[in-house]
Design a binder for these strands. Structure first.
Length: 474
RNA sequence: GCGCCCUUCGUCUAGCGGUCAGGACGCCGCCCUCUCACGGCGGUAACACGGGUUCGAUUCCCGUAGGGCGCACCA
């Protein structure tokens, strides 16, 4: 019986949860679910300059919205600094690490000279075997680990396969800074070990770091966790995502009207596949997932495809839930008049949503499509709608007002029948009558079925809107 | 510069020596139809290049080109 799986998601709180981080979190979560294990959350906040509480909140909120749960309390890496230092000193005591008294200026010069001579910019190990007594008085040392000087380090990766690094390419890197704080490379290893992490799933920008981290694991005699370095996500133009290039926070996707299940499905298909399956539930994702099925190549983020998937999930969503999401989204994005209209017309909106669902790809579009319900008379006409309402159209609409007033039932069937027979009586195709009617009733040329619109807004409102365009001054 | 990783339709991908190279999104056409969607049907489009290995390479190996990541007392 192998020990149960523990994964972790370890964001640094220097900004929002971006799309790449969200996918990393998703894969960690899905894998833990599948294996019946746990996913822990560790906030890598050792960079005190750039870490903020607001970012931590944004990340946790983003994960919660996406439906990614973690086990236990989030762990602060910064809070564990003493433990990191303890291990660094243990390594020192064992002679597997040493104090280095090189100054930053000295290191800069070392790198520049190496670069000038065409050598890799690495620390040359000058303090590896030097006696501390040779150091300048008052200088605070850093602690460097003794990396192997020959042989190779193999990262056994579930995605990338065995990746071999020659020891010559690894230098004696710093594990504890001169102020006694740990470096990222060191803190990660100590934390992953202490947290009992069995599987490290992270972006492949960490692949070369993995070799360095293995040096620490080996020095401590610790088991190296299983690793899976997943490919990165690029922007739609193939360029790396950056702050000014599409790397927006997960909350921005919510504000753009995407549903979390759509995003989960989309993200899962970026770099991972289960045969030809495109649309699948989160349960299926968990059921089908395997690290070996992850791709190695980076993929591009494609909003068009996300839109398509989101449309699918909007179509299959429960109207009551969609209503809530519409209200939240309107509120959150400052669409105040929409918010007021949605809240004031809850019942009508609720019954209209099934008509709206097949027509929207995002919640924002859903809101837009619902506007005809709460638009105030006289309705604003968009350009195409205004063009439809010429004198001919007004004449027909005027007749229709009479017909509608005489109608006993205000139902889709009754209205449909009435308008059809009118169109027949004047020898016009239904569309010739329906389009001006649509313009008058919605102010637009596109809308749900026009008879559905009429039943939704009701007889009085319908007649009022038609009269507004037939006799604007009355 | 050094190290490592990657490369199938425009995009996401299936493929794991022998396939008419499959699916999805997009796009185009047709159908449905009161508009727009939805839905249905059909179509367009790819193995980066050059060498090997093999009876046979999209698939295995080596180069080339292109892309990415890393090389801090950042994470």
């Amino acid at each position: 019986m192998s020990k149960s799986v523990v994964t972790r998601f370890a964001p640094s709180p220097t900004g929002f949860l971006h799309i790449g981080g969200a996918r990393t979190a998703l894969f960690n979560w899905v894998f833990a679910q599948k294996m019946g294990g746990k996913m822990l959350l560790r906030i890598e906040d050792t960079d005190r300059e750039r870490s903020t509480d607001a970012a931590v909140t944004a990340i946790l909120d983003g994960m919660t919205w996406l439906g990614l749960t973690w086990d236990g309390e989030p762990i602060s890496q910064f809070a564990r600094a003493d433990r990191h230092a303890e291990i660094a000193h243990e390594l020192l005591a064992q002679g597997k690490a040493y104090k280095c008294y090189s100054t930053p200026e000295e290191l800069t010069e070392m790198r520049e000279r190496a670069r000038a001579e065409g050598r890799p910019p690495r620390y040359d190990g000058r303090w590896r075997d030097r006696d501390p007594s040779e150091a300048l008085a008052g200088l605070k040392p850093v602690i460097r680990i003794k990396a192997p000087q020959s042989g190779e380090i193999v990262v056994k990766d579930h995605v990338q396969g065995d990746v071999v690094f020659r020891a010559e390419n690894l230098d004696d890197f710093i594990i504890l800074r001169s102020d006694g704080t740990p470096t990222y490379m060191h803190a990660v290893v100590v934390d992953d070990h202490d947290m009992g992490v069995t599987h490290i799933i992270r972006g492949d920008d960490h692949l070369t770091n993995a070799a360095r981290q293995i040096v620490i694991y080996q020095a401590m005699g610790w088991d190296v966790p299983e690793m899976a370095h997943i490919p990165l996500i690029h922007g739609s133009d193939g360029a790396k995502l950056s702050k000014r290039h599409g790397a927006i926070g997960i909350e921005a996707y919510r504000q753009m009207g995407y549903l979390p299940e759509a995003l989960r499905n989309y993200l899962a298909r970026l770099g991972w596949a289960h045969g030809d399956d495109e649309i699948f539930s989160t349960d299926q994702m968990v059921d089908w997932f395997s690290l070996e099925a992850l791709n190695k190549g980076a993929s591009r983020f494609d909003f068009v495809k996300l839109d398509n998937l989101n449309g699918h999930y909007i179509r299959s969503a429960d109207p009551a839930r969609l209503y809530d999401v519409m209200v939240e989204t309107a509120s959150e994005t400052g669409r105040n008049s929409d918010y007021a209209g949605l809240v004031a017309n809850k019942q009508t909106i609720l019954s209209a949503i099934p008509e709206l669902q097949p027509r929207a790809k995002t919640v924002l579009e859903l809101i837009d499509l619902a506007q005809f319900i709460y638009a105030a008379r006289p309705l604003p006409m968009d350009e195409k709608a205004a063009l439809l309402l010429d004198a001919d159209a007004a004449a027909h609409l005027s007749k229709l007002v009479d017909i509608f007033e005489a109608l006993n039932d205000w139902t889709v069937e009754a209205l449909d029948g009435a308008v059809r027979s009118y169109a027949e009586s004047v020898e016009l195709k239904l569309g010739k009558i329906a389009q001006p009617l649509r313009a008058a009733l919605t102010g637009r040329t596109i809308s749900p079925g026009i008879f559905e619109v009429m039943t939704l807004i009701g007889r009085e409102e319908s007649l009022g809107r038609i009269r507004d365009v037939v006799a604007p001054n009355r």
